[in-house]
Design a protein around this nucleic acid. Structure first.
Length: 594
RNA sequence: GGCCUCGUAGUUCAAUGGAUAGAAUGGGAGUUUCCUAAACUUUUGAUACAGGUUCGAUUCCUGUCGAGGCUACCA
């Protein structure tokens, strides 16, 4: 049991014994640095219930806790705050309990419990992945890992938007300008090649619009009547009609894109348990809409289009099926959600990692699924995150202002290499080992940079000022981990025995570290509840900062006392294990040396 | 217009309604005969504005100003 839980029940007991009342809630917080103590109770809320000044009440509770519990050694009261000093004995016992527990902080999933499906990535198949996808993927992957660690069974998934006018544009441009080329022939990634033809389409389209406008057509009409656009629309119709040639080309080009995506995902270090394709689920969505129509959830307009009226819920009327009977975005998402529960019957909730521009869409989607009567619809969560903007504004793929995911990772790795070579600490490493390390560091910098920010806040990414490698950064934390591993390699004595409180004279820095280590399980739970990897990132930063301060102030292997050496190595190792575990939840690797 | 986010040091980020608003970076001053200086120590500097609720507000409410987004029979 966590210290805060133990103390909460002790305090409840004290208040009942002293004042004869039952406390609804005990307000605990970490003691601020400038005061003596480890954990602090806020007395103010009691003033309404108990007669006396905050100091009197605090003193009485403090005296009771010292006299009647094993955890509290002494206390002090400052204004309305009761600062409790926790006994060294408690910390040592706690440490001995967890020091060899590799899974410390995580909870195993309950047998027969409900699973959560986490969706992220969700790319369109007409262009390569960019910085926006990177944030999406990192967030989704990390939240999935955090949920797992908090005791949930998790499935990772993505929905691939593999059909529609966007991919037809790339296909058409390839037919017109591609001369039958392939990724192999060009020696480029498949997603890059398909993205190239998407841009080619847009160029041709724009030039046709200009020609039409020059010949006197209004711009709005020109945009709708450019021949190449009409051809693309015709191609979409052929696709929907199942035209063999079009479908075959569609399969080929999507196949190229998937190969490219797989490579990028592998490089980022994320994976999926199951992929869903829009082309597979939109028909089910249409079916469900028909059923909902029969049940009265939806209503049909005279022109045949189907709607849901959400004005009673403060939203609008929303279309779910076009008048020509074809599916819209919403239709497909309804179908996908239902298909997922069909495929994985133990799924009891879903997390959708999608940018905040779609807040409204998901509000509506969740409402529709509730109205359709699915019990799991109560446990849907839109993991809404802010856009990644550039100093010039929004990224626009057609205007070439996107930061490509592959390029970005390459640049980060290259920067890590430059810095690493300047420092020159890697004697004995092969070039291959060095390259691997540079990638770990470069990606660590990028991932930490993105994940340490609260998901819902927008990020301003300036490619000119590259991501830092010093200060509150991924490499700073990785460096500390590598330092700890170096200590462990050099510790040529047996440090496995459990020490008793009499054998360890806890240094102030050691106690601070133990306090932080003890918080790890609560941090995982809080991060899972709030779907926020930032909590884990900020926690591990605090831990590492404290460790570096300890490392500076206290000799580990240099100590004269054997028990001190043993304890400090054990503690260092535990901090290292916690760093590795926490970074694992963020999808960041840690190096043995750097 | 309506609706939804967000406004914290020069910059990038923190702060379950709690103590004197924390870090990083930048600027200043230091630390290497000692376990990795991508580190440590120290100094400088901020809650957009105006009200309200509260013992207590960066946090909750209202208004103003500012930034972004949504408001498609696109996805």
């Amino acid at each position: 049991m966590a210290l805060s839980q133990i103390l909460t029940s002790r305090i409840e007991e004290a208040v009942t014994a002293l004042f004869g009342i039952t406390l609804e809630k005990v307000e605990l917080q970490a003691t601020r640095r400038e005061f003596e103590g480890d954990i602090t109770m806020v007395i103010f809320p009691l003033l309404k219930l108990v007669k006396g000044t905050p100091a009197e009440i605090g003193n009485r509770i403090g005296e009771y806790l010292v006299a009647n519990t094993d955890e509290v050694e002494r206390f002090n009261v400052v204004s309305g705050f009761l600062n409790l000093v926790v006994t060294g004995n408690y910390y040592i016992n706690f440490f001995n309990r967890v020091k060899d527990d590799e899974a410390f902080g995580t909870v195993a999933p309950a047998e027969g419990g409900k699973a959560i499906m986490v969706e992220y990535a969700s790319p369109n198949t007409n262009k390569p992945l960019h910085l926006g996808h990177v944030r999406n993927v990192l967030l989704g992957y990390s939240v999935a890992e955090i949920l797992k660690a908090s005791g949930k069974k998790v499935y990772k998934t993505q929905i691939i938007n593999d059909r529609g006018i966007h991919i037809c544009k790339s296909m058409l441009a390839w037919q017109k300008f591609g001369n039958g080329t392939t990724p192999q022939a060009e020696n480029v990634k498949g997603d890059k090649l398909v993205g190239h033809f998407y841009v080619e389409f847009d160029k041709a389209y724009k030039s046709q619009i200009n020609d039409l406008v020059d010949n006197g057509m209004a711009e709005d009409d020109a945009k709708k009547q450019a021949p190449i656009l009409l051809e693309a629309q015709e191609m979409l119709r052929q696709w929907e009609a199942g035209d063999e040639e079009v479908v075959s080309l569609w399969k080929t080009m999507n196949g190229w894109v998937y190969e490219g995506f797989d490579q990028t995902f592998k490089s980022i270090g994320v994976d999926f348990d199951k992929n869903y394709y829009e082309s597979d689920t939109y028909l089910l969505g249409k079916e469900v809409v028909e059923q909902g129509l029969a049940k009265g959830v939806f209503e049909k307009d005279p022109d045949g289009s189907v709607w849901i009226d959400l004005t009673a819920e403060g939203l609008d009327r929303k279309i779910v099926l076009r008048s020509d009977g074809t599916a819209v975005y919403m239709t497909q998402d309804i179908g996908t959600a239902i298909q997922r529960v069909k495929d994985f019957p133990d799924v009891g909730g879903m997390v959708y990692t999608v940018g905040n521009e779609q807040d409204y869409h998901f509000k509506v989607l969740f409402l529709i699924l509730k109205k359709l009567g699915f019990d799991w619809a109560e446990s849907l969560y839109h993991l809404s995150y802010g856009m990644v903007d550039l100093p010039s504004g929004k990224m626009k793929s057609r205007e070439g202002t996107v930061v490509d995911a592959d390029d970005l990772m390459d640049e980060m790795t290259a920067t890590a290499k430059t810095i690493s070579e300047e420092l020159g600490k890697l004697d004995g490493y092969t070039d291959q080992e060095k390259a691997k390390l540079h990638k770990i560091i470069g990606l660590g910098a990028l991932k930490y940079y993105i994940l340490k920010v609260d998901p819902k806040k927008r990020i301003l990414f300036n490619p000119e000022e590259s991501v830092d490698f010093a200060g509150n950064t991924g490499p700073f934390i990785q460096y500390t981990y590598a330092r700890i591993q170096s200590l462990i390699r050099k510790a040529d004595f047996d440090y496995t025995k459990a020490l008793s409180v009499d054998e360890v004279n806890l240094h102030e820095k050691e106690k601070e570290l133990l306090k932080l280590v003890a918080q790890y399980p609560e941090i995982i739970q809080a991060a899972a509840e709030s779907h926020s990897p930032a909590l884990v990132a900020n926690y591990v930063y605090e831990l590492v900062k404290e460790y570096n301060s300890f490392y500076q102030a206290v000799p580990v292997l240099g100590s004269e006392v054997m028990n001190e050496k043993i304890f400090r190595i054990q503690l260092s190792k535990k901090v290292g294990d916690t760093i590795r575990s926490a970074f694992g939840l963020l999808g960041i690797d840690v190096p043995e040396r750097m």
